[in-house]
Amino acid sequence: MPDFTKPHALTDVPFHYCPGCTHGIVHRLVAEVIDEMEIEGDTIGICPVGCSVMAYDYFNCDMIEAAHGRAPAVATGVKRANPDKFVFTYQGDGDLAAIGTAETIHAATRGENITVIFINNTTYGMTGGQMAPTTLPGQVTQTTPYGRNTNVEGFPVKVCEILSQISGVALAERVTVTDPANIRKAKAAIRKGFEFQKNKQGFSLIEVLSTCPTNWGKSPVESLEWLKENMIPYYPLGVYKEGAVR
């Protein structure tokens, strides 16, 4: 029998996320992994600036709210002081791949034993749907009202592809949560990330292709379809790097 009770690693505070947003699913997956590994008491989570800024109210483990883009540096500070604890960050695309690019890349190059949950929904959700580093060519956002013109705004950042080149990375895997089969794969990837961390084997990042119905101006179902048709071809799912670096 599947268990539909709320994981212990989530608090009773109701999520503030918009209807159809996939943050809720990903939060739950992380919490289930924490429960299954029985590590809630030894886990410290770092939230970003972005829609998941208030994730500290939702997770039952100790939580820290970081400045925009700085979560991997904050996580490094926690982890270096407490190498036996579990540390994860939960970051959006603007946070991780624009303002926090340096922190992301260098935490990865150091092979920090942390797990990064990376939500790629091709937009800055919290501020109202501006162009993100991951916004697709031609995609309309508040700051690309005529569609992202690669001659002007450049090209999307492919995080897993970049990380696959970095020696300190134990896991770079792209998943999505559009349907039950993919949700299972996503959870397995998150679990894998925490296992690498448990064994002190290097930096792990799980990129989750996600939806933002509100800012995309689509219904939840349309959003899932748009993700499958547009995002997955540009950001292919799969394992980009896997293997202990230590």
Partner: peptide, 11 residues
């Protein structure tokens, strides 16, 4: 990054 590492560690 250094000051944010301090932030994490101090936390």
């Amino acid at each position: 990054a250094a000051i944010n590492m301090v932030y994490g560690c101090a936390s």
